[in-house]
């Protein structure tokens, strides 16, 4: 589907967040199909892949890309809030993101290429919920809270409670992603980003790892991990994280670390890669992260 083809579907533009919530609620009540359009970089691709709609069954498209509320980046105390409608390009260029959540800036550079970065949003990445989503992996590393809103009001979902299965989540059908909130880990926190994807632009991750950690006296005291493309959901690697939090870095050995990764994920073969390769790379990048923190693995 091209931008020009948008003319062939029923299209409307949201005025403000409250009226959007009302409109979405109304459509949900009447069981009318609808879609929120932010950058369109996921949805328009999906239109190519799906079966043709039955005559008259096209969904209503509601453009949310101009909602100011979704485009804010705010720092309040030690919480950074990034609107769901913020694009990767904006993240790359935001002084707040660069200063306080540099992992997001780094991740944003690896998304698609500039054309995609200029349109694709964090909200779209979260809503599509692909296990390959780079943005979700990076947000997970910060243990982010997702702010959603509907007619019924605002709700905060911790990242660890969002995804329930392949492209399935605890977000209700009428809830809109408003923002991603990050409790900042502090200026001396370590962060790590590595995307492995065959080519250097326009690549879907075969494996990507985002990691954030605070280390005090050789001990990891805060740790968040998000790994793309190794499970039906963004993998949070709970056992690996537990190992980091429970063991002094100098005591962490390569075998132990590999075992933790083994127990966290069992990646599969698909057109993009093999399970064997993914597991090997997953272990390698986790070791790389551990080395960056000071472990000898």
């Amino acid at each position: 589907m091209t931008i020009a083809d948008l003319a062939s579907v029923p299209f409307e533009r949201a005025g403000d967040l409250a009226s959007l919530c009302a409109r979405v609620g109304e459509l949900a009540d009447s069981e009318q199909p609808f879609v929120l359009l932010a950058g369109g970089t996921d949805w328009m691709v999906e239109q190519e892949l799906r079966k043709p709609f039955a005559a008259g069954a096209e969904p209503r498209v509601i453009d949310v890309s101009r909602l100011d509320k979704l485009r804010e980046i705010r720092l309040e105390g030690n919480v950074l809030s990034i609107g769901a409608g913020v694009t990767y390009w904006e993240m790359r260029n935001s002084p707040e993101v660069r200063a306080h959540a540099p992992l997001l800036e780094r991740m944003a550079r690896d998304v698609g290429a500039i054309q995609i970065q200029a349109r694709g949003t964090l909200g779209g990445n979260l809503a599509t919920g692909s296990p390959a989503a780079d943005g979700v992996a990076a947000v997970a590393a910060y243990d982010a809270i997702l702010v959603v809103q509907s007619r019924r009001g605002v709700r905060r979902i911790p990242m660890s409670e969002l995804q329930t299965g392949y492209k399935a989540s605890t977000r209700e059908g009428d809830e809109i992603f408003v923002a991603v909130e990050i409790l900042l880990p502090g200026p001396d926190a370590r962060w790590y980003w590595r995307k492995v994807g065959t080519r250097r632009a326009q690549a879907i991750s075969k494996v990507a790892l985002g990691g954030v950690a605070r280390v005090e006296a050789g001990q990891v005291v805060r740790c968040g991990l998000g790994m793309a493309s190794v499970a039906p959901v963004t993998a949070l690697l709970p056992r690996t994280r537990e190992l980091f939090l429970s063991t002094k870095l100098e005591k962490i050995g390569p075998v132990q670390l590999d075992k933790a990764v083994d127990s966290d994920i069992s990646p599969i073969d698909d057109v993009r890669s093999t399970g064997e390769y993914r597991l090997h790379v997953a272990k390698s990048v986790v070791r790389d992260f551990a080395r960056a923190l000071g472990a000898r693995v």
């Binding site: 691709v45 290429a113 065959t198 080519r199 250097r200 632009a201 690549a203 879907i204 057109v271």
Partner: peptide, 16 residues
Amino acid sequence: IKNPRITNYIVPTALD
């Protein structure tokens, strides 16, 4: 053919 798309039939980009 399982990957008949530009996203997964990987030709090099200018950056490569």
